[in-house]
């Protein structure tokens, strides 16, 4: 462990891409503000994959890497839907997942919001609606906001969350 801290102090804070960092810092400010206003400083998200290619999950996981460091903004990905404010839904809604997705949704206490993540749940990605896909998420759930992309980059997800917060009524 000693080696780790040695390196940590030698390296200091790294910036790889100044423009991106600037955009991110603006997004962070707006996110923090929105979360403070609407969610008392802490937003709990339950991510549910209803049939993705796994890239949308990878980008959500990337939000926790040191470049984006989502947790310090008060956003947490929670394990239980009962702790969640928001269900973030990725992937096409498959025949086999639909009942489980609806179960998870039911378990989230009111007030709750469903946000669709990526082009799949709204059937805009190249993955087609087939016999095994139960149509766009909006047919089964009250979708409050959509974050487009295939997959949306971590930056686009942050932007989307800001957009969602700013779309909420006062």
């Amino acid at each position: 462990m000693f080696r780790y801290w040695q390196r940590r102090f030698k390296t200091g804070v790294l910036t790889e891409n100044p423009q991106l960092d600037e955009r991110l810092s603006d997004l962070r400010k707006r996110l923090k503000k929105g979360i403070a206003k609407h969610f008392a400083g802490s937003l709990a998200i339950r991510m549910v994959d209803s049939g993705s290619c796994n890239a949308c999950e990878a980008e959500c996981n990337a939000l926790s890497n040191p470049y984006y460091d989502l947790e310090r903004l008060g956003i947490r990905f929670v394990a239980s839907p009962r702790h969640a404010d928001v269900m973030l839904l990725s992937g096409v809604l498959t025949f086999n997942m639909l009942p489980h997705v609806l179960d998870a949704w039911e378990q989230i206490p009111e007030p709750k919001w469903c946000i669709t993540l990526g082009d799949c749940p709204v059937l805009q990605s190249p993955i087609e609606r087939t016999f095994a896909v139960k149509g766009p998420a909006g047919e089964h759930l009250p979708v409050a906001y959509h974050i487009p992309g295939c997959p949306p980059s971590p930056e686009a997800i942050l932007e989307g969350l800001v957009g969602f917060l700013e779309s909420m009524e006062d």
Binding site: T94, M97, T130
Partner: peptide
């Protein structure tokens, strides 16, 4: 498994 079965081979 096969919760994510999307029917891709057919499509």
């Amino acid at each position: 498994h096969f919760y994510k079965y999307r029917g891709i081979e057919k499509s």
